[in-house]
Structure formats: C-alpha cells, structure tokens
Design a protein around this nucleic acid. Structure first.
Length: 210
DNA sequence: CTCCCGATAT
DNA sequence: ATATCAGGAG
C-alpha cells in the first residue's frame, strides 16, 4: 500500500502554495476560464481572458452575444465552437435558473451545459472553498502512474482518491498534482530523475533501471 | 467511442 | 509530422 501521509508531506514541501493557475476575480470568471481550459494551456487561457473579462461582465453578456462573435473572442483556445456554445448556453442557464449567479454546489454546477465534474470541482474548490478532487488529465495520469488508482475513468479515479486523501486536502492535492504534472511528471517524457516522489511511484520504480 | 480544434514542444 | 494541452457532449 501507499504511504499517503508521506506523499502529502512531499507534495506540501514541493508545492506549498499550490493554487488555481487560472486568472479570475469572480466565480463566473473562474467558470469561463475553466471551460476554456479544456485541451489548452492555462497561459493561453489567461491571455484570452484578460481581454474577455473586460468585455463580458455578467452571465447575460454571454447569453446575449451573437455566437459567431463569442467564437472569435475565444478562438485561440481551441474547440472554440463547442466552448462558445457552452458559454452562451451556460450564461442563459445561469440567468434562467440562478439569477445570473454561479451556484455553489456540485449537483447544480454539473447540470449547467458544458460543465462536467472536473470543471465543477475546480469552481467549488477555488471560488467557494468547498473540497473537491479535480481529476483532469494531469491528476488522472499521475495517480495512475503512482499506483494510487487502477481506474481509467476520471469519475472512478475521483472516487478512489476521495477515499485515500483527507477531505480537507482535496483541493490543494489536486493543484499540487497539476503543478507536478506540468513541471516533472509530463505526459510525454516524465522527468523521473528529478522526481522526489520516485520511491512512492510504481511507474518511476519500474522505469528505474540503471 | 468519436468529435470538437488552435497553439506549442518534440 | 505528431503528441499533447486544467474536457464535455452526443
């Protein structure tokens, strides 16, 4: 079995101030940034939202803008047609069902168009301080490599992690792994030689031959 | 499972 | 050229 407390200590030491790396000032801004972050780097999202948030200030602003105009405003983040549709429909749903405000519960968030569990848990953790495990591509990859889960499905991974990670650590843990995934445990060529989690990692152990 | 999709690193 | 990047919907 895994020495979870030790793994958490190492992560705290490596990334003591791990937080959301998307720029935002309100729950709505975080929602938009997180939708845009799908299959896109957070640097590019921040670059786009810098201008976007000046132009779109309320949920109604997203609901009312012509689709083509919103598509152009977010084009460089990729998947721009899907994302524009999601943001527009989401803005309308917020106005319709939540007085234009972003709800602070998982159930209500995942009912919004374009918002899945990953996005919902980002919003819960960083905008509402409600614990949630964010299983994105980084968290999924790293926890599989380490042997913290055997599942492939992000939702199953989320539930596996919820059982072994203390609830008050869920949000920090997610952001720590995301930073670790960007700096060390890359998808293509993980830098196992620089990884302080090596001895706790199945992938690192099996790759350590020399 | 497939599709959506521009930008960047290798 | 190709894999990958804070995924979600049909």
């Amino acid at each position: 079995m895994k020495n979870i407390p030790e793994i958490l200590r190492i992560l705290d030491k490596l990334y003591p101030k791990a937080k959301c790396s998307l720029d935002f000032n309100t729950p709505l801004e975080l929602l938009v940034a997180t939708v845009l972050s799908a299959q896109c780097t957070d640097e590019r999202v921040n670059q786009v939202t810098k201008n976007l948030f000046n132009k779109y200030r309320t949920a109604a602003d997203y609901a009312d803008v012509p689709t083509e105009e919103l598509e152009e405003d977010i084009r460089s983040t990729g998947f721009f047609r899907n994302k524009a549709k999601s943001l527009k429909n989401c803005g309308a749903a917020l106005v319709e069902a939540h007085q234009g405000e972003v709800p602070g519960s998982l159930d209500k968030l995942v009912k919004l168009p374009g918002i899945g569990r990953k996005t919902a848990n980002v919003i819960l953790g960083s905008a509402f301080k409600i614990p949630g495990i964010v299983v994105d591509t980084h968290v999924g990859r790293i926890t599989q490599r380490m042997g913290l889960t055997r599942e492939q499905d992000p939702v199953k991974i989320e539930f596996d992690l919820m059982e072994i990670i203390p609830k008050d650590k869920w949000t920090v843990f997610s952001h720590q792994l995301i930073q670790h995934g960007r700096k060390i445990c890359n998808a293509r060529k993980p830098k196992c030689g620089e990884c302080l989690l090596l001895e706790h990692c199945d992938f690192g152990q099996s790759a350590a031959d020399s």
